[in-house]
Design a protein around this nucleic acid. Structure first.
Lengths: 259, 259
DNA sequence: ACAAAAGTGTTTGTGCTACACCCATGG
DNA sequence: CCATGGGTGTAGCACAAACACTTTTGT
């Protein structure tokens, strides 16, 4: 940017693309949207959705456009989150030419339509962890994106974008448990969420609802706060204090890939 | 990346650059390295150092190269930190052409030589806060970089890269106080640092040293740990004591493209 | 009656805050 | 002696972990 000897044609052309790691929660699993490539290189391999940044378009706009094209969500005012992850710029990441890719992570509430991609390409949701090896360096991007999502749940209220507009605290807790792959203590989770001003707010007319049997829970919607002041940390899978051997295994549902 | 209709010349050329926010601590202040532009646009304005990514070079390599060129640090094995910040891709951020810039943040221990830039351009350190308005969108980049540095001190051991190889706990604490612009309680800071395994390790032969008068402090060097398990949070600007005003949202959370 | 989920309460421990106090050095 | 910085101790509080218990629904 501040190079002195400047010449508009002193450099070889770079292509700039955006790649999207789109997450949602379907069928009690964290799932990622992947697209099957129809041509070389990596024909037949699955990859993250993405595409070229247009000449008069910001990278953010390109990411929004690709997200809309790929998922069919259009004027959806809320209920999703999109943020830049980082940029992948190895010279050999695409065998065709020099491509620098700005990766984005997107979080979506489960969509009404399975997918609305305009193109005739194959696209589907894969449970995170069941995804096949991806094209290019997309395995690394997806891995980075997953770690970002895990840690974002700790210090932001982003978990609510995975929920429907109205949700119970049990459903919100399930988001955390599914993404982190750990169990959480319900009473403590409840207190933590309710003690954080602006995390959730109770819905007025409390028409209760249930997700199976059991007592129906009170309904909430997302509040106005974005940050969790004391973070909601995921339990550390590592240290066990002292020599406590008893009472460890119990009901920790440690499935899923660790962060 | 996974666009189907692919044509090598279907896009206009983009330039890809790296921009660096280089921080150090000199004269008890957090300072940033700036370069005076010698040509249009923004001739005479100060800007972050940076330059074009070469055709066969990763963006990380380009950042390392620019850092070496600009600061003169060469084979320095350690004692500095370089990490990608984020990418700035607005179509109008450079009036000459379409330029996408991958920004990096660099943290350096104070250098022996003031600067070793090979070029004849003007470069100097500015105390953070005293920097003039910068060219392009570099004010925004610098602001993001500063926030990143502040938060990185909270949950990593990165403060040690600002220190000389051997340092006292008082010097380490000063790093935090200078960067954050707040005072810290010495006994508590001390306990926190020493209680974190791998943050610092005592230097064997304890030849004590002093930074003025007063009791000489024990010397330490950086340990092997990178993360601070319980974070070392900067004090919230809110009131202590008495009535906790509801407030405040306080800590910055980088929301994405959001909804 | 039983299972399952929601919701309340209580105990215990850890880590941070705030502050009081002593030690070593230079002027 | 005093000022300055290094270093130790301790009481109080906020918060989280763990777990016992009650309530409300469906089968």
């Amino acid at each position: 940017m501040s190079v002195e000897g400047y010449d508009k044609h002193a450099f070889e052309p770079f292509a700039v693309t955006v790649d999207l790691a789109v997450f949602t929660i379907r069928e009690d699993r964290l799932q990622v949207l992947l697209i099957e490539r129809g041509e070389e290189p990596y024909r037949g391999r699955w990859a993250l959705p993405g595409g070229f940044v247009l000449p008069r378009e910001s990278t953010d706009d390109a990411a929004r456009r690709e997200l809309a094209e790929e998922t069919g969500l259009d004027g959806s005012p809320d209920r999703f989150h999109l943020e830049q992850l980082r940029t992948y710029g190895d010279p050999d990441r695409d065998p065709r030419m020099r491509v620098v890719s700005v990766a984005y992570a997107a979080l979506l509430s489960d969509l009404p339509e399975p997918r609305g991609g305009g193109d005739a390409v194959h696209a589907r949701w894969f449970p995170h962890g069941d995804a096949p090896p991806l094209a290019f360096d997309h395995d690394a991007i997806l891995s980075d994106a997953y770690e970002r999502v895990c840690s974002k749940l700790e210090y932001t209220t982003l978990a609510t974008v995975f929920c429907p507009e109205r949700f119970t605290l049990g459903e919100l807790q399930q988001i955390y448990e599914i993404v982190w792959g750990t169990g959480l203590d319900r009473p403590n989770f409840r207190r933590k969420v309710l003690a954080t001003p602006g995390f959730v707010e109770p819905v007025e007319g409390p028409p209760r609802r249930t997700a199976g049997r059991g007592k129906p829970g009170a309904l909430y919607r997302a509040g106005s706060a974005a940050a969790l002041q004391p973070a909601l940390l995921r339990p550390t899978a590592s240290l066990s204090r002292g020599v406590r051997s008893i009472a460890d295994g119990s009901r920790r549902v440690t499935l899923g890939v660790q962060c």
